[in-house]
Computed example of a mutant assay.
Amino acid sequence: MKKRAALLFALIACQGLAQAQDVPTLRVGWTIPGEEAKYLMAKRPELFPNLGKAYQIQWTQFQGTSPMVQAMRAKVLDCATMAPMSLANGAIESGLKAYIVAQHVHSDAGHFSVYWAVKEDSPIKTAADLKGKVIGTNAYGAGVYFDMLLWLRQNGIDPDKDVKIVETGFPPAADAIRSGRIDAGPMAQPFALLNEEKGGLRKLFSLSEVASPSVQIFEGCSQEYSDAHPDVVRAYVQDLKHAMSMMNKDPSLAVEVASQVTRAPRELLSKYLFTDKDFARVPDMQPDLDSIQKTYDRYHEAGFLKQALNVRDFYRADLREDTP
């Protein structure tokens, strides 16, 4: 009897192991900030009906969207966070083929937009006052950087001749302004809120002046992987949408998991996450293809992109359909 029980247990264990091994693994890249849907899936997987059943996830953190694009091109990732410019450069320079499957955050007139600040008592009041000054940016080649160049051009400033542009990143930008190392620098959350509460700085211009709405980051999945495993990608997208829906109804969920991931205090995060002080979010994470197309058109016209792109080449609508 004991032998039969042991044999039965072994068979059940082997069957469970085989079933676990049959669940496909999706390799997903992520970064900080703006990806609360992913944070919730990583920290609270029990909330999602498809995760662990239709697929499982191998999470890998990166320092930005450009390295994730490179990793997808090298077939190290199946899905990852992308910005319009990182996807465009990947497509043009290395032949990356990816589908835009979900939108994480965007900026518009009613929500937060990255802005440039100066000292409270700075004589810089208009774009013209920036001539001969030093301007900080988060990173050369990022979408924020290119939109800053467009704002300067639109306001009569030649970025190559009239100003000096240096990399500061977002976290050190405020200190760089206060110390005089730069005259104007970029503010993104939560650093914007921290420095608004600290005082001593004021907003000079916002990127919403260049375009509104403007998509900041979205989820992209390899076309090769998606075409071969559409059901896996659909299940993943449905879970992303479920995460966003839950957090829109209960922002404390976003605060909880964002605090775990970023180690930022909940008290700070609760002041802006999922409020009008934060980037805007689409409840069902539907990508704003028209906005992305306009970004590509602006960048191509300005000479930032070597060739024109059609955003529809990066979209497959059925990947967003409900799984059976």
Rank of each mutant, 00 (worst) to 15 (best):
P213S: 11
V105C: 07
Q216E: 06
Y145T: 12
K97P: 03
H104P: 06
V144L: 11
R316Q: 15
G95I: 08
E196W: 05
D129K: 04
L96D: 08
A37H: 07
H300R: 02
Y55T: 03
D313A: 09
P213E: 12
N138Y: 04
Y272Q: 06
L194W: 02
V166Q: 11
G90F: 13
S212N: 08
N155S: 07
Y296T: 00
W151P: 01
L201Y: 14
E267S: 10
P213D: 05
S226M: 13
A308L: 00
A91Y: 15
V311W: 10
S66A: 11
Q260K: 15
I182H: 11
D147V: 00
I292W: 03
T81E: 05
Q238E: 11
G132H: 13
Q216L: 04
F170N: 06
I57S: 00
T275W: 15
F170E: 02
M1R: 00
P171F: 01
K306T: 14
G200A: 11
I32E: 11
E209L: 01
D22I: 02
Y99N: 09
L51R: 06
A98E: 13
A10D: 09
I182N: 11
H104K: 08
A109K: 13
K161D: 01
F205N: 04
M72S: 02
A173H: 00
Y39H: 08
L193P: 04
A174H: 09
T25I: 12
A37Y: 03
A254T: 14
A302K: 05
S179A: 10
E197V: 03
R234P: 01
P324N: 03
E209A: 00
K294D: 04
Q19G: 01
C14L: 05
G185F: 03
A142R: 12
D162L: 04
Q189N: 09
V311D: 13
L77H: 12
Q56I: 03
V261K: 13
H242R: 15
A254F: 13
D250P: 07
G90S: 05
N155M: 02
Q293S: 01
L7V: 02
D322C: 02
N310G: 08
T126N: 08
Q260P: 11
W116K: 01
D160M: 04
D162K: 04
G136K: 05
D227Y: 01
E224Y: 03
F112I: 15
L193K: 14
K131S: 15
F48V: 08
Q260H: 10
R263S: 08
R181L: 13
P287V: 07
W59H: 02
A127G: 05
E256L: 06
P190V: 05
E301W: 00
Y236Q: 14
F146Q: 07
R73Y: 03
L201K: 09
C14A: 02
M246L: 15
D313W: 01
K53R: 08
Q307N: 02
P172Y: 04
A254N: 15
H229E: 06
I124H: 09
S113Q: 10
P190I: 01
K97S: 09
K43Y: 13
K75L: 08
K125S: 07
T31C: 06
K53Y: 00
Q63I: 09
I177V: 15
E35S: 09
D250S: 07
M82G: 05
K2M: 04
P45F: 07
T60H: 08
L130G: 08
A20D: 13
N89K: 14
G90V: 07
S226W: 06
G303H: 03
A91E: 13
E197L: 05
M41P: 10
R73D: 12
K125A: 00
A18R: 10
